[in-house]
């Protein structure tokens, strides 16, 4: 007789919802057969990490999977990274693989000290091994994505680049020791990555002035 049951919008479904209240008020002493099969079905259909992942309906054409050999895995790159072996952990602590980096890269990378929620994900660890070209490519061509975010984090926190909000370039401050006898002990030069034209890191000219306000606080 309740008003809710007269409402045509819900009247059909309401009785099913009400049925579910019974076990709440008077739980079954033993699981009835129907419940056993419902529970087992739930176990069988248990949502996994792929179900819980962020949905993407529209795919940026650049990020569509390219046809590759059938022998290559087609699973997403976000696999769970294997147990951190002691060697790997040490590498993580002292910076990425030294051997494949150039002199410049070695100067840029600092020991990984960021302990945020991304630091232990496989993608962040993978990005720490990418060279600058790859990082900038992802940054400029995958805008608004999680990958872009991680790359910006890698550039800012681990490689010490700074992002200019105004011209959208990444800048790097290089500090070198001056030859003896010079007035200043250190010399500061700035470089920026020219993403629009040459796709190279270029030296800033002498009238470049670093203005903290222009740079994103990442």
């Amino acid at each position: 007789q309740h008003k809710a049951f007269k409402n045509p919008l819900f009247s059909e479904e309401l009785k099913y919802w009400l049925d579910s209240k019974r076990p709440l008020m008077q739980p079954y002493k033993e699981m009835p057969d129907r419940m056993v099969s419902q529970l087992e079905s739930s176990l069988l259909n248990c949502p996994d990490s792929l179900d819980a992942d962020t949905p993407y309906l529209y795919r940026n054409p650049l990020s569509l999977p390219h046809p590759t050999s059938i022998f290559f895995p087609s699973e997403p790159i976000r696999f769970v990274s294997p147990v951190d072996s002691p060697q790997l952990q040490q590498q993580q602590n002292t910076g990425s693989n030294e051997s494949i980096k150039s002199e410049d890269d070695k100067k840029e990378s600092k020991p990984s000290t960021t302990h945020d929620i991304y630091s232990r994900t496989s993608l962040a660890k993978t990005f720490s091994k990418f060279d600058l070209d790859t990082l900038f490519f992802i940054f400029y061509h995958y805008q608004g994505t999680y990958e872009q975010f991680l790359v910006a984090r890698e550039l800012a926190k681990h490689r010490n680049w700074k992002f200019n909000k105004i011209n959208r370039n990444w800048y790097y401050k290089e500090v070198t020791k001056s030859p003896p006898g010079m007035q200043q002990a250190e010399e500061e030069t700035w470089r920026y990555f020219d993403y629009q034209n040459s796709w190279l890191a270029r030296r800033c000219n002498s009238d470049f002035k670093y203005n903290e306000e222009d740079f994103e606080k990442l």
Partner: peptide
């Protein structure tokens, strides 16, 4: 789960 066992794992 007590009300809807088919959704327990979810």
């Amino acid at each position: 789960p007590v009300a809807f066992p088919g959704f327990s794992f979810a």
